[in-house]
């Protein structure tokens, strides 16, 4: 499939509408943030150019480093759980008939709940006195409390995210799986390929494209997670579930003014950008290797 595409500079015309849309809704605001990050703003009329002062200030912030590590751990945990689980789910979903439709709808339900409602529901759901999850865990003998115990809070946020977002991975993989022509499976059957071989050499390579989107989306969105933990735990207990986005908002609204917050969000943006770039390139290389079938990584 990676034969060379014809070079055609006129293709830019086809891309132009997208570039205009995105430039309008993303680049303009981004420029404004860059502008803020270099100034000390007292009021719209009184502003002083401060250069990179805010960046230096933000980089030295110890709490920021802590929040960054918490964030990295969380996003890593999200990917390790949700990607394999989503692939398994996609493989287990029935392919045809009313069952397939019903399962599709049921699986997608959690994606359609507004994020603040997700947090609110889990807030009740996890309470030991009136919530199902909390009550069940207590029945099983765990001294569970997402408001009192940092580890419990962290695990609850992770479980909530897995519940909320695994369907995204599953739906993408499912659509990818369904695009594999029957002939591939027939050929595999004739060759007597094992289930695992079918997965490794047919399904996985064919899912590469959708899987890449899934990994990047889940990585980005979990890295910017805000509403759900904010509603569920408010970042607590202590700082256990204060992730980067929440820390940023605390700073922006509470202690700092606009300048440092803007500098912080630019650094934040660059971190996500860098990590996504690494992921993207790595996944592209892995994908090409497996296509040749020579690499058994």
């Amino acid at each position: 499939m990676i034969t060379t595409k014809p070079v055609n500079q006129k293709a830019w015309w086809l891309v132009l509408p997208v570039v205009i849309c995105v430039a309008f809704s993303a680049v303009l605001p981004l420029m404004t943030v860059v502008n803020y990050s270099l100034q000390d703003i007292f009021s719209p009329e009184r502003r002083v150019f401060v250069g990179t002062e805010w960046f230096a200030l933000v980089m030295r912030d110890e709490e920021l480093h802590a929040a960054l590590w918490r964030q990295l751990t969380f996003s890593l945990a999200v990917l390790t759980v949700e990607i394999p689980l989503g692939i398994m789910l996609a493989l287990a979903m029935p392919a045809k008939g009313w069952k397939s439709s019903a399962v599709l709808v049921v699986v997608a339900l959690s994606l359609l709940i507004p994020w603040n409602v997700v947090g609110t529901i889990w807030q009740i759901f996890g309470r030991t006195d009136i919530g199902l999850l909390g009550a069940m865990l207590q029945e099983m003998g765990y001294d569970y409390s997402y408001t009192g115990n940092g580890t419990h809070a962290w695990l609850t946020v992770l479980t909530m995210d897995v519940w909320h977002w695994t369907p995204l991975v599953a739906l993408l993989c499912f659509a990818g799986l369904r695009s594999i022509p029957d002939a591939y499976y027939q050929a595999a059957r004739i060759d007597g390929a094992s289930k695992f071989a079918v997965f490794r050499y047919i399904q996985l390579p064919k899912m590469r494209g959708v899987l890449m989107i899934a990994v990047l989306l889940r990585f980005m969105d979990s890295f910017m997670i805000y509403t759900e933990p904010f509603v569920l735990t408010g970042g607590g207990p202590g700082n256990a579930t204060t992730f980067l986005s929440q820390y940023l908002t605390q700073k922006a609204v509470g202690q700092f003014d606009l300048g440092p917050a803007a500098a912080f969000s630019l650094i934040y943006f660059l971190i996500i950008l860098l990590l996504c770039f690494i992921l993207y390139n790595w996944m592209q290389r892995v994908g090409t290797d497996s296509k040749e079938g020579s690499d058994h990584e």
Partner: peptide, 11 residues
């Protein structure tokens, strides 16, 4: 997609 929303609200 990677722009953290919190501070982009004002722009």
């Amino acid at each position: 997609r990677m722009t953290p929303p919190a501070v982009f609200l004002l722009p």
